[in-house]
Simulated assay, not measured.
Amino acid sequence: VPAAAETDAPGAPGVPAAARQARRAKDRFDPPSLVRAKNEPLPGMRALAEFVHPALAVTGFAFWAAYLLTGDRIFAAIGLGILLGAICAGVSWFTVNKRAVRRGRADALILSPRLLLLHGAGAALTLLLTALITARG
């Protein structure tokens, strides 16, 4: 039963030893940043949140501008939904980045508490005003 011993090796259940060696040989020239990215619990989450947060903010602003120009309340409702998505993306970006700082990663983005407080206060005020205007009559 040597084949079963190969597939039940510790650290890679169900993966044959030859496949593990081929993967290691292919990955040996990876730069340190790629190795860290491959070892993240959710690979690519920081990069996704880093892109999605400002992208949703710009898209939400475009829908809000469309509401202001046309007066059509559907644009306000869509803008509010996109704003909520941007807030969720920002909170997840903050959480993932805070974990990276705690782990001592060199590529973690360290922001001042004052900047984070101002950004959060601005987001809360924007959410409040958007929700009140969307809910009005």
Results as ranks from 00 to 15, higher is better:
Ala9Thr: 11
Pro10Gln: 04
Pro13Ser: 08
Gly14Val: 12
Ala17Ile: 10
Ala18Met: 14
Ala18Ser: 11
Ala18Lys: 11
Ala18His: 14
Arg20His: 04
Ala22Cys: 05
Arg24Ile: 07
Phe29Met: 12
Asp30His: 01
Leu34Val: 12
Glu40Ile: 01
Pro41Val: 10
Leu42Val: 15
Pro43His: 05
Arg46Lys: 08
Ala49Lys: 09
Glu50Leu: 15
Glu50Pro: 01
Glu50Trp: 14
Phe51Pro: 03
His53Gly: 01
Pro54Ala: 00
Pro54Asp: 03
Ala55Ser: 10
Ala55Asn: 05
Ala57Arg: 10
Gly60Phe: 00
Gly60Gln: 02
Phe63Ile: 07
Phe63Ser: 07
Phe63Val: 06
Ala66Trp: 07
Tyr67Pro: 01
Leu68Pro: 04
Thr70Met: 03
Gly71His: 01
Gly71Asn: 02
Asp72Pro: 00
Arg73Gly: 00
Ile74Glu: 09
Ile74Arg: 06
Ile78Asn: 00
Ile78Thr: 01
Gly79Phe: 01
Gly79Trp: 02
Gly79Gln: 03
Leu80His: 03
Leu80Tyr: 05
Gly81Ala: 00
Ile82Tyr: 02
Leu83Tyr: 13
Leu83Cys: 05
Leu84Glu: 13
Gly85Trp: 07
Ile87Glu: 11
Cys88Phe: 12
Cys88Gly: 15
Cys88Val: 14
Gly90Pro: 04
Ser92Tyr: 15
Trp93Tyr: 14
Trp93Arg: 14
Trp93Pro: 03
Phe94Tyr: 14
Asn97Gln: 11
Arg99Glu: 15
Ala100Asp: 15
Ala100Pro: 06
Ala100Gln: 09
Ala100Trp: 06
Val101Ala: 13
Val101His: 00
Arg102Phe: 09
Arg102Ala: 15
Arg103Gln: 14
Arg103Cys: 12
Gly104Ala: 04
Arg105Pro: 04
Arg105Glu: 15
Asp107Leu: 02
Ala108Ser: 06
Ala108Asp: 00
Ile110Met: 08
Ser112Phe: 10
Ser112Lys: 04
Pro113Glu: 08
Pro113Ser: 04
Arg114Gln: 08
Leu116Ser: 01
Leu117Tyr: 06
Leu117Thr: 09
Leu117Asp: 00
Gly122Ser: 02
Ala123Leu: 14
Leu125Glu: 13
Leu127Met: 10
Leu128Ala: 15
Leu129Met: 11
Thr130Phe: 14
Ala131Tyr: 04
Ile133Val: 13
Ile133Asn: 05
